[in-house]
Design a protein around this nucleic acid. Structure first.
Length: 574
DNA sequence: GGTCACACCCACACACCAG
DNA sequence: ACTGGTGTGTGGGTGTGAC
């Protein structure tokens, strides 16, 4: 800070000037301290604009930036529906004005408890009526008192998570969701490239598709995957003596591994050695008709275990034979001699070349293979690009024709054009309902959970829309009975089950449709390992007070939700 | 115009099977 | 035991539209 700071220009003597300067520096250094003189904690998402500068401003002014999304004020210009968001302007303004400003004024969606806001969080219920008993017959839920009162203090702002249904940024990913994705990848490191893993994560998160989560990981999160858990060959976590998962050194290989130029070279050399041994002088160059025993590929897989026996065999018949064993060896050696990096063999599968074994047996394949491997690879890359462009053009043309036809139909009074839209709508619904190995709903949708009304929704998953509509209505925060009755009468959810769901989500209405959706897709009651949905196991973990278990809960539910759950437990609600 | 979420694509690694 | 045929889904993208 320079002494000619505008605010202190009236200082008459150097002593005063020094004292003022000292005070100012002290103020700045202590700007982000709380009443107990402790650093105020903030969390800033990794992808936040100007994050580096914000971190710098906070830390140089006495504050602390947490790397745990559940700790501290959440500083972001993007609102997170699962917590209070404070605009970064709060930091800039406080620093600029050299004063800790009122943080409430910078909250994107301040939780004022106003009923008219789209913030709904039922934490207290009437203790009368059928819905007040919280038991379930279908889970290992701890038995609860038959006459449990659901009365809860509503005034405790400390433990009330700020939940809003307002979503900004097109269903954007919250820090909790990002953390959950990374955690799942850490637990399944060898499946980090698969589509299935992300489909599974999608089921747990509920708000995004597997595709979307996969893309999110690949584009935004992968870079920050600095460590993963150690797993065995079957993908199970390996635990240490204390039962904690071990951390791996580096990243394990993925399920499948691409063949590189060295692989092709090693393969070709091994094949040639084998044939020379067998045929001696009668060895035929680039033979297309060579029988190699299974033992050969078995040995190869032992010597080069990063590919399986089947993979080596497949690579041999689909790539090395069509290109030419000796031709590839010569190509590889020449590239190395000339200081160039050899390419692997490409474009010999499916549509390109490997349609019929006759083609390479007769040698006609050579007509399609360029002078060099590079030329060959380039040729097919170009062909593919041209084919894709042509396909896109055709699709555009089809779309134009379709709309033209629709216009004509309208004009000619024929109504909408055929059943194109119906078919596509049906396909879209079918796709939306398609999940991996779904459990049969008949097995878990028992009478004590749902009524006949529930089955009127077809497909069943559409009941989630109805439930969303129900929970979006305005309710008195002290009255869950109204909600339970609506769920019973309009969605066919038995009152006891409705109460159980509300209890499992600690009264957080936004999670109720999510609960039902995941329940329908997985049959899990309550759904396991879902942010904000408490299971009997989670409650046991909470009661155990074992640090590792509490850490796990903190990652899964966040500190605020843990405090809220404790209140539930203390009040004997669960 | 850039970024993001999401859908979709496709070569090919790996596996299985009937002949 | 070996073969060619082929299914599955990974791995690494690209296309599209909303914001």
């Amino acid at each position: 800070m320079s002494s000619d700071d505008g605010g202190f220009e009236s200082a008459k003597n150097s002593d005063n000037e020094n004292i003022d300067q000292e005070l100012l520096e002290q103020t700045i250094a202590n700007l982000f301290l709380n009443n107990q003189n402790e650093p105020i904690q903030f969390f800033i998402p990794a992808n936040e604009d100007d994050r580096e500068n914000l971190v710098n401003l906070i830390t140089t002014h006495g504050g602390k930036v947490s790397d745990d999304a559940s700790i501290g004020y959440y500083i972001s210009k993007n609102h997170d529906p699962l917590r209070d968001s404070v605009e970064p302007k709060f930091i800039y303004d406080s620093v600029e004005q050299k004063s800790l400003l009122k943080i409430e004024s910078y909250k994107t969606f301040p939780n004022t408890g106003n009923e008219n806001e789209n913030v709904q969080h039922l934490v207290s219920f009437l203790d009368n009526g059928d819905g007040a008993n919280t038991t379930t017959n279908t889970t290992e839920q701890d038995s609860t008192t038959g006459n449990t009162s659901l009365q809860l203090a509503t005034t405790n702002q400390e433990v009330q998570p700020a939940i809003s249904r307002s979503i900004v940024n097109k269903n954007g990913f919250t820090p909790q969701e990002d953390a959950m994705i990374i955690d799942e990848v850490r637990r399944n490191p060898n499946r980090r490239s698969t589509h299935k893993l992300f489909d599974e994560i999608a089921l747990k998160i509920g708000r995004h598709t597997g595709n979307s989560i996969r893309y999110r990981f690949r584009t935004h999160l992968q870079a920050s995957l600095d460590w993963v858990y150690l797993t065995d060959e079957a993908g199970n976590l390996i635990l240490d003596q204390d039962g904690r998962p071990k951390v791996a050194e580096g990243l394990p290989s993925t399920v499948k591994r691409k063949f590189d130029a060295k692989d092709d070279y090693d393969l070709a050399v091994a094949v040639r050695e084998n044939l020379l041994e067998k045929h001696g002088d009668r060895y035929e160059r680039d033979s297309k008709d060579v029988v190699l025993p299974g033992k050969f590929f078995e040995t190869l897989a032992q010597n080069f275990p990063h590919h399986t026996k089947s993979a080596w065999r497949d690579r041999y018949r689909k790539f090395v034979i069509p290109y030419g064993i000796d031709k590839y060896i010569e190509y590889y050696q020449e590239e190395e001699t000339n200081g160039r990096i050899p390419e692997e063999i490409k474009n010999f599968t499916g549509k390109n070349l490997y349609k019929s074994s006759k083609r390479y047996r007769t040698g006609s394949i050579d007509d399609q293979v360029g002078e060099t491997l590079t030329e060959h690879n380039d040729q097919y890359d170009q062909q593919r690009r041209r084919a894709n462009a042509k396909k896109r053009k055709q699709q555009q043309q089809d779309a134009n024709n379709l709309f033209a036809a629709a216009d004509n139909d309208e004009i000619s009074g024929l109504g909408h054009s055929g059943n194109f839209f119906d078919n596509h709508a049906a396909a879209a619904v079918a796709a939306a309902n398609r999940i991996n190995s779904p459990p049969s709903p008949e097995d878990f949708l028992t009478d004590d959970l749902v009524t006949a009304k529930f089955f009127e929704f077809q497909p069943l998953i559409s009941v989630v829309d109805k439930i969303t509509e129900i929970v979006n209505r305005s309710y008195q925060s002290s009255d869950a009975e109204q909600l339970i009755t609506a769920l019973y009468a309009e969605a066919g959810i038995q009152k006891k089950f409705g109460t159980f769901i509300i209890t499992s989500v600690c009264g957080d209405l936004i999670l109720i449709p999510k609960f039902v959706e995941i329940f329908l897709k997985t049959g899990e009651n309550p759904p396991q390992n879902i942010h904000g949905i408490w299971t009997p196991r989670d409650d046991q973990y909470l009661k155990s007070e074992i640090p590792e278990r509490l850490d796990y809960l903190k990652r899964l539910h966040g500190a605020k939700r843990i405090e809220l759950r404790k209140t539930f437990i203390t009040n004997d609600i669960v």
